[in-house]
């Protein structure tokens, strides 16, 4: 019908399209600005547990040595207190090794630094705990 023949309509549609696109652009810009302003719970740095040879080695070394030092010191203290010469040192040295293994286990499994065997992914996200 005659509606189609009216030329201003075509122009109107074109103008509308232009208007809409600039409108969408503005919308996108506002959204981007909002996103920048309110950061979405931080950008998680990706850290794979298996990465980094010597750095990881150093970390594991420190963890094991720390556990051994603590264990041995407790053993020494107990021996000195109870006069049970080498026994508590031996026992707690072994316990210290166990604790060292636990520490390493937690690091390798990305369970973070927490004490306690917690199931992977039971709480939070292990990914951010794999830092040096």
């Amino acid at each position: 019908m005659p509606e189609e023949d009216i030329t201003p309509k075509a122009q109107g549609a074109e103008g509308e399209a232009a208007q809409r696109s600039s409108d969408d652009d503005l919308d996108a810009r506002i959204r981007a600005a909002s996103a920048k302003h309110i950061p979405e719970s931080a950008s998680k740095e990706a850290g794979s547990p298996s990465s980094g040879g010597i750095g990881m080695g150093f970390r594991i070394g420190v963890e094991v040595v720390s556990a051994l030092v603590v264990g041995t010191l407790i053993g020494l203290a107990l021996d000195r207190w109870l006069g049970t010469a080498p026994w508590f040192v031996i026992l707690f040295f072994l316990m210290g090794s166990g604790a060292g293994v636990m520490n390493v286990y937690r690091i390798v499994n990305g369970l973070g630094y927490s004490v306690g065997l917690r199931a992977s992914g039971s709480k939070g996200d292990g990914s951010d705990e794999n830092k040096m």
Binding site: V65, S66, A67, M95, G98, A99, N103
Partner: peptide
């Protein structure tokens, strides 16, 4: 073991 592991935190941190 867990107690030792817990106590080793400040040690490893400082080392």
């Amino acid at each position: 073991i867990e107690i030792i592991s817990y106590l080793s935190r400040p040690v490893s941190l400082s080392i």
